[in-house]
Amino acid sequence: MKVELRGVAARHPAARAGAAPALKALDLVVAAGEQVAVIGPSGAGKTTLLQVLACALPPAAGRVALDGVEPWSLPRRALQRLRGRLVLAPQVPPLPPRQRVVTAVLAGRLPALGLAASVRSLFYPNDIPAAHAALERFDLAEKLFERVDRLSGGERQRVGLARALLAPASLWLVDEPLSALDPARSAQAIATLVDAARERDVTLVATLHQVDVALAQFPRIVGLRDGALAFDLPAAEVSREQLARLYAQHEHELRGDAPPAAADETPAAAQPVVMHCR
């Protein structure tokens, strides 16, 4: 699926009224079957970009086109069909905690199933070998019949990626899929995802905090800062100087360190994560 943004401005869904847009007059074209990593400091607009590409967030200005079609000009049913041709994998996969992993992975196929088949698949997984094969690519085959709430955070992220492999989609949008993975698992997971996209000729756009993984695994790197395009280059042409400018005042993110705490700051209690599924 070809992706095209022309002069797109958009606000984050949680932004206050009157807040500055998270994306500002952004131009971006991704060819069908291309794999692109989007990097940049926190607040650069990376997640908002994926929301716009997923037809989940209408732009405040500019033009968005997927395979030449402008999503927000379509009737509701046609827009739903277009959404069925893409998959958006959030940083925290919305996996029901009491669900079995096999069911969670096969849920990637739901857009291609009718209502009766969708309901039946929740109780009687219809292609266990396919789920096993997808999990095996992420070294999770032994978790096939495990309950989701017994998985670690990193295992849940990899289950979310395995689910994407089974989706009947020509566009994969993946948001920060490595936040709970160690460096070795991160490299393996992204290599698997990129290889699978190439095998299926799927367009892949992934946002990443791990700059070294992005440079090693993706042929093209897009740098965002303050909602604007900082650079759009082949990975081999991205210099240390460009990265230093991109992450200025955010050097800890470039190094992969934890953010510095203020002197009078005390650790906050963990807050529950609320996930909204549409």
Results as ranks from 00 to 15, higher is better:
A44C: 11
L144C: 05
V148T: 02
R185F: 06
L224W: 13
V64A: 09
V205G: 08
A65M: 07
G84T: 11
A116L: 14
Q99G: 11
L106N: 14
A164D: 07
E146V: 12
L115G: 00
L144I: 01
R158F: 04
P96V: 11
Q35K: 03
A248S: 04
A228K: 04
A20G: 02
P59C: 11
P21V: 09
V105H: 02
L181A: 09
V102A: 03
V29E: 15
D195T: 09
L165P: 13
A167Q: 12
E176L: 08
R158N: 00
K46M: 09
A268I: 15
Q217T: 09
P234W: 02
L140S: 01
D27A: 04
L229S: 04
V38S: 07
A236R: 09
E34Y: 01
R255W: 09
P94A: 03
A14C: 12
I221T: 02
R76Y: 09
S42D: 03
A261Y: 11
S42V: 14
V211P: 04
V119F: 07
V202E: 02
L193H: 06
L233K: 14
R278F: 00
F145P: 06
L23Q: 05
G114V: 14
R100V: 06
E241N: 12
G160D: 00
P96N: 03
G43R: 08
A235V: 14
A167D: 09
A19H: 12
V3R: 02
D175Q: 03
